[in-house]
Nucleic acid binder design. Structure first.
Lengths: 216, 216
DNA sequence: CAGGCTGGCATGTGATCACAAAGACTGTAT
DNA sequence: ATACAGTCTTTGTGATCACATGCCAGCCTG
């Protein structure tokens, strides 16, 4: 490692840059479900050839963030209700465990940061900004789970978020809510009180509730 | 190479063929932890160019089945004890849920098949064949979980198996056990009795026990 | 006007190449 | 004998190209 000539963009490898950008877009709901992408289009957009575009796309597809038709056409996935329920259950399982592991290490500074992030969530809800809402909501969860010191579990949770990204966008886009996130307050309260069963319940409910209203 | 000379192999796409073969090798412990691979070597072995080899490798790396150094060198991962503990916890979480969901649909035919597979497990243990042991052991679990009708969860479980593959190989390779798998019998018994809490406990124990003896 | 067919365009796949960087190896000096 | 330096080989990366395939529009026919 001589010296990276680029202070921004930690990894300067083309395929990684493309991967990260696309991943963000998908996870935070910039792309609607069913939207299709082309390798040449991605390449042109990022100023690279098809090769790194293909690697990024295949990686995303492997993580379930994109689906590939038999002919190799890629598009953002349109999830069935069963799939959504399953992914919600997975979120509940993993994230409850992460929260539980994070709790003993959650100091006041962390809780304050969660509070701050949660204000951003409320603001996004008030402005009906779906992308900001998803982004700050996930940041709230990630900030808490980071304290669990369980990178493999966190990676799994993020993979699930990734798969739900376009769907969440579609969901919150047609949502008329303006009330701030109630269950986040419960999470913070349980954290403050050191109430582990309460924390588990609050996380499970928060994670499950949003997806429940998908049942058509 | 205009026409693939191979009528078998359901998917005739080069990168997919390479991916599947490598994945099997890793998951079933054909490769020791820390073993390094080269793209040109893989390409030569499968008779393809570097391009599909790279895609297969990157996909495996994305799934945690291979690690890539900063310079892009790939090798099978040597897991830390914390990582192993974490992955074991993940297995417990997900597989207990899968077993629980599979139980209501577990008919006699399924239990018989589990019994048969378990005999293969016993035989592999008796012959001290680590690869056969891992393969039939995972087949036992997969057969049960398939009944849960939860493809996303099963995929996650398999990803964890994949990450643990080389480590399990190293573990069972230096194991001197010859007794047949006790906890599998408990699982089958709980299934027969319709004892859901017992099933959860049996699965959790079976999944956890093997990795416990890793704590150096 | 409807339905099927054909031709052309768009798109993914895999091979090959040039290049850069990382590692290994060898020879030398201390 | 060991440490260092220079080179030579190995290896990953990304661009480009040829090719096969799938999709779609427009046309023709009934």
């Amino acid at each position: 490692m001589t010296q990276t000539p680029r202070p921004l963009d930690t990894h300067l490898l083309a395929h990684d840059r493309v991967y990260r950008h696309l991943r963000s877009r998908i996870m935070y709901g910039d792309l609607a479900p069913g939207q299709s992408l082309t390798l040449r289009g991605i390449g042109k957009e990022f100023g690279v050839s098809m090769t790194p575009a293909r690697e990024a796309v295949r990686r995303l597809a492997a993580e379930g963030a994109l689906t590939m038709s038999a002919s190799g056409r890629v598009s953002t996935p349109a999830l069935s209700n069963e799939r959504i329920e399953e992914l919600a259950a997975l979120r509940a399982l993993i994230e409850v465990e992460l929260a539980s592991r994070a709790m003993p290490r959650a100091h006041y500074a962390l809780i304050d940061r969660l509070q701050t992030i949660n204000n951003a969530v409320s603001e996004a809800v008030a402005h009906r900004d779906a992308v900001s809402y998803i982004r700050s909501n996930l940041e709230f969860h990630r900030t808490l789970y980071l304290r669990a010191q369980a990178p493999a579990m966190l990676a799994m949770a993020e993979t699930v978020w990734l798969q739900l990204g376009p769907t969440m966008r579609a969901l919150y886009g047609r949502l008329r809510r303006t009330e701030p996130p109630h269950f986040h307050k419960l999470i913070i309260a349980a954290l403050r009180a050191g109430d582990e069963p309460g924390l588990r319940l609050a996380v499970r409910t928060d994670v499950t509730q949003g997806l429940r209203m998908l049942a058509t």
